[in-house]
C-alpha cells in the first residue's frame, strides 16, 4: 500500500518538476508563469495594456503572413475561372453600366429630396457621419467556436476607438471591442456576446442577440408579436452607437435573422469614426 502511494507521489512530482534534455522548463514553473500572465492581463495592470497591444499587433501581422497560402490558393482557382469567363463578364458589365446610367439621374433627384426631408426631420447627422468613414482590411478571420470576431488592419493610430460600429456596403457587421495601435478586433453580430437594439419593419423594437451560430436571434420583442419571414431589421440607434436605420438583415421562416452580410466572408469593412467621437447621435 505504502509502495503504491510512493509510486504515485514520485510520478506526480516527476510530472510537475521534471526537467532536462529538451525540457528546459518544468511544468510547474510554466503553470505559475501562465497564471501570472493571466491575472496581469485580466486585471489590467497599467503597463499590461500597451504591452498586450504591442503583442497583438505583432502576432496579427504574423498571422496574416502565415495565412497567406490559405488565402492565395482559393484565389488562384477563382482567378482562373474568372479569366475564362472574361468575355461574357464584359458583355454583362456593359449592359449593367447602361442600366446604371439611366438610374443615376433618378438617384440624384432622390438624394436631393432625401437631404431636404432629413433637414425637415433634423436627422442630418446621418449623412455627415458617412463622410468620416475608414476603410479597413480584414487581417485575420479565424473561426472560433467561442468568439466570432475578425481582426482589422486599422487601430488607434487611424482613430479607431472601442465601440465604433463596423459596416460593409452600408450593412452593419459588428463593433470594435479591442483596439491596438495598428489593429483592432471587431465583434461580429452573430457572436454570443453581441447585443444591439434594433427596429423591425413595422416599427417594433427588439434586441438583436448573437447566438454563436450563423443567425442571430431577436429578444425582448413586444408581447404577442409573431415573427414572420422577410421582415427587415435595422439598427434603432437607441444605444447612441449605431446609426439609426442601418440595415442588418431580415427574418427567415424559423424566426432567426439572416444577416445581409455573411460574417464568414469579410475581406474589407468600414469603420464609422464619427459615431463615438460625437458622443451622441
Amino acid at each position: 500500500m505504502s509502495v503504491s502511494r510512493d509510486d504515485f507521489s514520485i510520478a506526480f512530482r516527476s510530472a510537475l518538476l521534471q526537467r532536462g534534455g529538451a525540457q528546459k522548463f518544468s511544468v510547474l514553473s510554466l503553470i505559475f508563469l501562465a497564471l501570472l500572465i493571466f491575472f496581469l492581463d485580466v486585471y489590467g495592470v497599467k503597463f499590461t495594456k500597451p504591452v498586450r497591444g504591442f503583442i497583438n499587433d505583432v502576432v496579427y501581422r504574423i498571422t496574416y503572413l502565415a495565412s497567406t497560402p490559405t488565402r492565395i490558393f482559393p484565389q488562384v482557382g477563382d482567378n482562373i475561372s474568372s479569366f475564362l469567363n472574361v468575355k461574357k463578364e464584359n458583355e454583362r458589365l456593359k449592359a449593367e453600366i447602361e442600366k446604371y446610367k439611366s438610374l443615376e439621374l433618378n438617384v440624384e433627384f432622390l438624394t436631393d429630396e432625401n437631404k431636404n426631408l432629413q433637414n425637415i426631420l433634423e436627422t442630418e447627422y446621418f449623412n455627415k457621419n458617412l463622410s468620416n468613414i475608414l476603410l479597413a482590411k480584414v487581417l485575420v478571420d479565424k473561426n472560433s467556436p467561442f468568439l466570432k470576431s475578425v481582426i482589422i488592419n486599422k487601430g488607434t493610430r487611424a482613430g479607431v476607438l472601442k465601440g465604433m460600429p463596423v459596416t460593409k456596403d452600408n450593412y452593419l457587421v459588428g463593433r470594435v471591442v479591442e483596439t491596438n495601435y495598428l489593429s483592432s478586433r471587431v465583434l461580429l453580430l452573430n457572436d454570443l456576446n453581441s447585443r444591439i437594439p434594433v427596429t423591425l419593419d413595422q416599427g417594433a423594437q427588439a434586441i438583436l442577440s448573437g447566438s454563436g451560430s450563423k443567425n442571430p436571434i431577436l429578444e425582448y420583442l413586444p408581447e404577442d408579436y409573431e415573427i414572420i419571414s422577410d421582415i427587415n431589421v435595422f439598427a434603432s440607434g437607441k444605444d447612441g452607437i449605431f446609426a439609426p436605420g442601418t440595415p442588418i438583415g431580415k427574418t427567415n421562416n424559423e424566426g432567426l435573422i439572416e444577416l445581409f452580410v455573411d460574417p464568414n466572408q469579410l475581406s474589407f469593412v468600414t469603420v464609422n469614426l464619427n459615431i463615438q467621437n460625437k458622443g451622441k447621435l
Binding site: L35, I37, V42, V59, Y60, K142, S144, F146, L147, S149
Partner: peptide, 10 residues
C-alpha cells in the same frame, strides 16, 4: 490566446 482573443495565458 492573442489570435483567438482570449485572456493571455489561458
Amino acid at each position: 490566446d492573442v489570435v483567438m482573443g482570449f485572456p493571455l495565458g489561458i
